[in-house]
C-alpha cells in the first residue's frame, strides 16, 4: 500500500499527463532537456532504421519524454508508450518534435 502511494507521486510525470495545450516550437528530439516531453512531428532517417523506429512507436503524434542521459552524455534514454529506449544523438537529431513551453 505504501509503495503504491509513493509511486503515484510519479504518475503525473508520464508523458500522457503533460499539459500540451500551450505554445510550442519545432526542434530536434536531441535538443529537448531532460524531463521534458515532445510530440513527434516527423522522422528523417534511412529507410530501414526509420521503419524499425516507427514499429517501436516513434510515429508522428506520439509523445516522447526525455528520461536521462547515459553517463558519457550520449546516448539518451527516452520514454515512449510506457517503455524506455536509448538512442544516440545523431539518431535523435533526425526526429523533429514539437517542444511545448513548460507548464509551471
Amino acid at each position: 500500500m505504501v509503495a503504491i502511494a509513493v509511486i503515484s507521486e510519479f504518475e503525473a510525470e508520464t508523458a500522457d499527463d503533460f499539459d500540451l495545450s500551450g505554445a510550442w516550437k519545432l526542434s530536434q528530439l536531441s535538443q529537448l532537456p531532460i524531463g521534458t516531453v515532445g510530440v513527434i512531428e516527423s522522422l528523417d532517417l534511412p529507410g530501414e532504421v526509420q521503419h524499425h523506429l516507427m514499429h517501436m512507436g516513434f510515429v508522428p503524434e506520439a509523445r516522447v519524454k526525455v528520461v536521462r542521459r547515459a553517463p558519457a552524455g550520449d546516448p539518451t534514454v527516452y520514454s515512449i508508450d510506457g517503455f524506455e529506449v536509448a538512442l544516440r544523438r545523431d539518431t535523435a537529431q533526425a526526429i523533429r518534435v514539437r517542444e511545448y513551453e513548460a507548464r509551471s
Binding site: M56, A86, L87, D90, T91
Partner: peptide, 9 residues
Amino acid sequence: SSAPFILEL
C-alpha cells in the same frame, strides 16, 4: 558507416 544504436531498456 556507423550503424544506429536503438536499444530497449
